[in-house]
Amino acid sequence: MRQIIIDCDPGHDDAIAILLALAHPDELKILGMTTVGGNQVLDKITDNALKLLSYVDAPIPLAKGAAGPLLGKLVTGEEAHGETGMDGPILPSSRYKPLDVHAVEFMLNLIRNAEGKVTLVPLAPLTNIALLLTAYPEVKDKIDCISLMGGGIGEGNVTATAEFNIYVDPEAAQIVYQSGIPIVMSGLDVTNRAQIHAVEIEELKRRGKASVLVGELLDFYSIYSKVLGYDGSALHDPCAVAWLLKPEIFRSEAYHVEVETKGDLTRGMTVADRRKKPTQEANVRVLLDVDRDAFIRMITEALDVLDRRLAATN
């Protein structure tokens, strides 16, 4: 069993990634969750995270982290995620509250007290993770892997070359990428291929409580995708969780990756050395493709598990 900490900014696709993890208690033990300013401001996305956990009866301890990036001002993803950061379904107020401890201290304690190693699953700007690794570098020995959603070696979304999570806090990303901890990167190269189609979203809305929630989330999320010419929606964040469960459905390559923190056009780009003879050792496993059908099946089956679990308790 893998012990994980999810660092997130829900966020439609964050919510689906969290549900995917919650549906696999035999494979993934969620030690805790942390939030960081990203898709929307910190208070909004923390509220979204707590509402989601409450809605599916999952009392995962959660701590608030950094409100914004290490340098500069927070850029939010309101264009894609709406005013609340998770527009679409109206969720009831949460029964849960955030812990009275900062995300960085919370992660530190979880990792220190864990038996064996911990996997970090960041689905947001890497501010919290960079702060943790900088303030308490000794935790690196107890982190076996960081499976993150961010970047892209062949495409960007905020700019031609930069993906949102990395673009928001490139300095934090560079700290994490160069930390020496093995990194698995679900960037746009793979996440834009992890598409759920419109007909599949419709199907979700005819099923149980968790499926309907995801269907409604994706109805809103698809509005922005349609602007970009997609029939459906890219499930970005769930890729980082799906790789922990079924790495065999992904194609990947190991590269040396640096984060461009300067660059007059390329700030926030993840620069992979794909040359035949790269000058530095690989530090990142870059996911490049996914068996889409197997991936969507994994999502729908996970939601099915949660639907049944919730139907049994409510």
Binding site: E155, A160, V271
Partner: peptide
């Protein structure tokens, strides 16, 4: 393609920035 060249001083200096997004805006 819409193209510009990165004129910074770091790892992507001199790179062709081709804006291949659905709605390109750079270059």
């Amino acid at each position: 393609m819409k193209v510009s060249i990165d004129c910074g001083d770091s790892i992507s200096a001199g790179m062709v920035v081709a804006d291949l997004r659905t709605k390109p805006s750079m270059g």
